[in-house]
Amino acid sequence: MSVRDEIHAQITGALKNAKFPINTPEKLLAAFPDGANTTCKAGDIEVTAGEAGKLLKASDFPFKSAKQVADVIVQRAGL
């Protein structure tokens, strides 16, 4: 599994119990198990939900699924 796929899978896994749609960055961070401190790791890459949240724009909301969140984060992170 590539680093991109691993991070994507970890993000979707972390958000598996979230209630969608998620309309704000604050609600998205709150949906992660450890909030902004939730960490995804793959290979040499480590990113927290708080760091990943900085890649998001107001126009990205609302998110309708964990997959959509993960898609946007891995794309913007350049993974």
Rank of each mutant, 00 (worst) to 15 (best):
C40V: 15
K67Q: 15
A58L: 12
G50Q: 01
P62V: 07
T39G: 05
N17H: 09
A36G: 08
A49R: 00
A58V: 10
G43R: 05
G53T: 06
G53E: 11
E46G: 10
S65E: 10
K16V: 14
A30T: 03
A42W: 01
V74N: 06
E51R: 06
E46I: 09
L56R: 03
A70K: 02
K27H: 11
G43M: 04
D44P: 14
K54I: 10
A31Y: 01
G50Y: 02
C40G: 14
I45F: 09
A31N: 07
V47L: 06
T38G: 04
N17S: 09
F20M: 03
F63E: 01
F61A: 01
D60R: 06
A18D: 05
V72S: 05
P25W: 11
T24G: 01
L28M: 08
A42Q: 06
K16H: 13
K67M: 14
P21S: 12
T38W: 00
A31Q: 04
A31D: 03
D71A: 03
G53C: 04
E51K: 04
D44I: 13
T48K: 03
Q68L: 13
A31W: 02
A42S: 12
A66M: 08
G35H: 08
I73L: 10
G43F: 05
A52R: 00
F63T: 02
P21F: 13
T39D: 01
I45E: 12
I22L: 05
F32G: 00
D71C: 07
D71P: 06
A49E: 04
K27R: 14
K27C: 03
I22A: 01
D44S: 15
Q68H: 13
A70R: 00
E46Y: 03
I73P: 04
T39H: 00
F63G: 02
L56T: 10
A36P: 08
K67A: 15
V47D: 05
F32L: 01
F61K: 05
C40T: 15
F63H: 06
K27P: 00
N37D: 15
N17F: 08
K41N: 11
F20P: 00
Q68I: 12
A66K: 01
I22F: 06
F32M: 07
G35L: 10
S65L: 10
T24K: 06
C40I: 14
G50F: 02
